[in-house]
């Protein structure tokens, strides 16, 4: 359910940025999402499409790049993890600290300055 709030925040940031550049249509938004955020990319893309309707971001593609998590294991050192993990993926030790994998960042937007700005 929390993807909806995230979708709204992405839209707000993207629209504010596009408006600084003349309010042109947004065609693409690039995001980095850590695997530990519990965000389902398809849900986020769907909800973004929904909240973007009737705005200058209507129809924009949400391109999501997943950031892996790293597990710092006392025995093995840093090990990459594909999702939330409770133990070291290499040796199984529970004495791990999960680092990274919690990004939730809007990287860039693509705006089409050849199209006229649409009424929001």
């Amino acid at each position: 359910m929390h993807e909806l709030g995230i979708a709204r925040d992405i839209l707000d940031i993207a629209v504010a940025e596009a408006e600084k550049h003349g309010g042109c249509r947004i065609t693409r938004v690039d995001l980095e999402v850590g695997v530990l955020r519990g965000v389902v990319p398809e849900n986020l893309a769907f909800l973004f499409g929904h909240v973007a309707m009737g705005t200058i971001a209507e129809g924009a593609r949400l391109a999501i790049e997943e950031q892996p998590a790293r597990v710092a294991c006392e025995a093995c050192g840093p090990v990459e993890a594909r999702g939330f993990t409770i133990a070291c993926p290499a040796c199984g030790s529970p004495a791990v600290k999960v680092e990274g994998g919690d990004a939730l960042r809007i990287l860039s937007i693509d705006i089409d300055d050849s199209l006229p700005a649409r009424e929001a």
Binding site: I6, A14, R105, I106, L107
Partner: peptide, 8 residues
């Protein structure tokens, strides 16, 4: 347009 901004 580069933004590089943390959401939330």
């Amino acid at each position: 347009v580069d933004i590089e901004r943390q959401i939330q």
